[in-house]
């Protein structure tokens, strides 16, 4: 078995307080172990709390109870700032800083994380190359298309060489064609960079195409209802995956699960 990079233990998150009557439990006792170079996809209906869960993994929010373990070290209910370097977060609607060029959006990561030196400068170009936007280095986000912006967003999350890439519905705000294309590209990025990836989506096809393991969440409060191993070899995952028998079998299975989720 590969190395366990990150593990989540019984994490719960609630907002409000019972006293004020606005108490709401968003996620409940979620545990998962994430292994090196794994691609994990979390599936769930919209509003089920999957984004909240990712925000905890990305260090944006802290969990109410539970703890996390990074490379075997317990880091508590909230990712401490010095550990944030190990994570790269891709937001749903790119969330690029409009006042910075594509390159500048990558550079701010290095600046804030205090990563200086030639090799990091070079890495900016490398990452833009990986997402195919090296020619658009000096272009401001408003001059880029939606798909290109999201690709810059992915490059930005990779530039500081994190151990774990976290993607919060990265393709959600795109049109159907761009979405399809970018999902294959994501697959290639994963193959090329060999990162551990945790992604949230509400699209079953995307999930099967990309994931090693799929976790299905229930509606609020979110708990893991199913864990599905996707045993399609990486070589068979390409544009022809629609003809794969196992793919269709899994697709049927997951669609049934989701239909039954409430």
């Amino acid at each position: 078995m590969a190395n366990k990079v990150f593990s989540v233990k019984e994490i719960s998150k609630s907002f409000g307080s019972e006293k004020n009557g606005n108490y709401m439990e968003v996620i409940k006792n979620i545990s998962m172990d994430i292994y090196e170079k794994e691609f994990i996809v979390i599936l769930g209906n919209s509003g089920c709390g999957k984004s909240t869960y990712l925000k905890i993994l990305g260090g944006i929010e802290s969990a109410t109870t539970g703890s996390m373990e990074l490379n075997g070290e317990n880091i508590g209910a909230c990712i401490p700032p010095e550990k944030l370097k190990k994570f790269g977060f891709v937001f749903q609607n790119n969330n690029l800083l409009p006042w910075r060029t594509a390159e500048g959006n990558l550079r701010i990561m290095l600046k804030i994380m205090k990563l200086k030196g030639e090799q990091w400068e070079k890495r900016i170009d490398e990452m833009l190359e990986i997402v195919g936007l090296l020619d658009y280095k000096k272009v401001y986000p408003h001059e880029l298309s939606g798909g290109m912006k999201q690709r810059v967003g992915i490059a930005r999350a990779l530039v500081h060489d994190p151990d774990i890439l976290i993607l919060d519905q990265p393709l959600g705000a795109l049109d159907a064609i761009t979405r399809k294309m970018l999902s294959y590209e994501l697959l290639n990025i994963w193959k090329k960079t060999q990162k551990t990836i945790v992604m949230v989506t509400n699209n079953v096809d995307e999930a099967i195409l990309l994931a090693n393991r799929i976790f299905v969440l229930s509606n609020k409060p979110a708990v893991i209802t199913h864990e599905i191993e996707v045993d399609i070899p990486v070589e068979e995952r390409n544009t022809m995956i629609g003809q794969n028998a196992r793919y269709n079998e899994l697709r049927e299975q997951i669609n049934n699960i989701i239909r039954a989720t409430r």
């Binding site: 944030l84 977060f89 937001f91 800083l97 006042w99 701010i108 804030i112």
Partner: peptide, 24 residues
């Protein structure tokens, strides 16, 4: 979202102000 981005990369309050709030 912009503030969340700052948080996700571990920016201090001052850095967040300079790089996000002020520029915005």
């Amino acid at each position: 979202e912009k503030l969340e981005f700052a948080k996700s990369i571990g920016a201090s309050k001052f850095e967040t102000f300079i790089h996000i709030t002020f520029m915005n």
